Computed example of a mutant assay.
Amino acid sequence: MIILEYKKQMISDDILKFRENMMFYINTAVGIFYVGTLPFFAFNSLLWNDKEIFYNYFTLFLLTNISMYILFSIALLWGKPNTY
């Protein structure tokens, strides 16, 4: 769904106004979160064997989660329609 939304934005002229486009930031946030945390969730049982690697991936999970919610906040702040 993320790829389809990016494709829809690139085909239309919405990509030129990506700063006001709320879906651009939401798609970017979800994409970064899913790609960043895929190894953590896919290999969670294997990572328990080496605690140092597990904690590094857990820190990456927390950072991608924080960045996702920051991008959600940016989307809500910048993506508001102009009411002037």
Rank of each mutant, 00 (worst) to 15 (best):
Y57L: 15
D14Q: 14
F43V: 02
V30H: 04
R19A: 08
F41P: 00
L47Q: 02
W48L: 12
I53R: 05
P39E: 06
A29G: 09
Y34A: 14
I32S: 03
I11S: 07
L38G: 04
M23V: 05
D50T: 01
N56W: 15
N44A: 15
K51N: 07
E52N: 04
I53T: 03
E52F: 07
F61Y: 08
G36F: 01
N49D: 14
N56K: 11
G36A: 01
L63W: 04
A29H: 09
Q9R: 11
L63M: 03
W48H: 13
M10H: 04
S12A: 14
N27V: 13
F40E: 01
K17G: 09
A42I: 06
L16N: 06
K8V: 01
F24K: 00
Y34M: 13
F24M: 01
P39Y: 01
N21F: 10
F33Y: 14
P39I: 06
T64E: 09
Y25P: 10
Y34N: 08
L47S: 10
N44G: 12
L46W: 12
Y6I: 15
L47A: 06
I11P: 01
R19P: 00
E5I: 13
D13H: 07
T28F: 04
N65H: 15
D13M: 14
Y25W: 10
Y6R: 06
F33I: 13
E20N: 15
L38N: 01
Y25K: 08
M22A: 14
L38I: 00
Q9D: 05
Q9Y: 06
I26C: 10
I15L: 03
A42E: 10
F18Y: 14
T64Q: 05
Y57K: 07
F24D: 01
M23R: 06
W48Q: 11
N56M: 09
F24R: 00
L46Y: 04
N27Y: 08
M10Q: 00
